[in-house]
Computed example of a mutant assay.
Amino acid sequence: MKNLKSILSISLVCSVFAVSTWAEVVSKVELGIPKSGVVVEGIGVPGVDLGDTREEVLTSYGEPTQCTSVASIGDMASCVYRLDIGEQVSIRYRGADGRDAQNSQNDIVQSIRWIGMDEWITSAGVNYNLAHNHSEALLDAYPDPTLLSRSHFTGEISRLIDVAQGFTVSRSYNPYSNRTSTRLSIFPARPVQ
């Protein structure tokens, strides 16, 4: 009977944790992270633009799930918003002066990366599903990439960077798990010489 009470207690704790974790996920969606919309390369994603302040991001998306320091302790330059399983948005900040982020409301969005978010579609027609499952189709959308590399294992596109449009797709294949992870991101576009 004592073991049954222990099992029930553990089960209750796990259930409470699962409910509170799910409540956090639901609250992130309710705070304004759009589940769908157009990504404009070099400009912005649904709800946030490059160049927005940290304060503007907090107003639009709410509190992030987690922030970590990048260049110096306490800069909180990289913030992640986790949504549904397999979906997240990461925002990288720099300081308003163009240097390292300062964990200030005036820090500026430098780049935005996302995983999942299949209903976010770039102006060139690329969504997460296409980038993840049909990498060769990326060349139809971005025919003149600044950098294109292929996986030694699969021969598929592993990285595509289009500096002129401010867009990147990174795909990593793990031969041990036979799985590919995919990340899409935008950054300020720059002219290519």
Rank of each mutant, 00 (worst) to 15 (best):
S9C: 10
G116R: 03
S27R: 14
W114M: 06
L148M: 06
S158A: 05
V25Y: 14
G166I: 05
Y128K: 02
K28Y: 06
Q165M: 05
C79R: 03
A18T: 13
S135I: 09
I33F: 07
G86I: 11
L12W: 04
L160I: 10
I10C: 13
D52E: 08
N103D: 15
T146P: 13
V40W: 09
R92W: 00
P46M: 04
V109Q: 03
I115N: 06
H134K: 11
D49E: 10
D49C: 10
Q88R: 09
S90A: 06
A131T: 14
I85T: 07
S90D: 03
A71V: 08
V19I: 14
G98W: 01
A101N: 01
V38I: 15
P188M: 08
Y173I: 11
Y93D: 01
E87C: 06
I7W: 06
T154V: 02
D118Q: 09
Q193F: 07
R82W: 08
D49A: 09
L148C: 04
E156A: 11
D162C: 02
Q193S: 11
G86L: 09
S185I: 06
V45T: 07
D49F: 07
G51Y: 02
R190C: 14
L160E: 07
H134S: 13
P46F: 05
V109M: 03
N174P: 04
Q66T: 05
N103A: 15
T168D: 01
H152V: 02
T122H: 07
E55T: 04
I186Y: 03
P34A: 12
L12M: 14
Q105K: 15
M117F: 01
A23V: 14
P64I: 11
R99C: 01
F153L: 04
V80S: 09
M76V: 01
P191G: 07
I7A: 10
F17P: 11
R179L: 13
S9Q: 05
I73P: 12
M76A: 14
L184W: 08
Q165A: 09
R159F: 01
S27C: 10
Y128R: 01
E55C: 01
A164V: 00
V89C: 08
G47T: 03
A71N: 11
L147C: 08
K5P: 00
Y173M: 11
L58E: 14
A71F: 00
S111Q: 15
K5G: 00
S170T: 11
D144E: 09
C79Q: 10
S177L: 12
I108R: 04
V163M: 06
V57N: 03
E56A: 13
V39F: 03
A77V: 02
V163K: 06
V89W: 07
L184F: 07
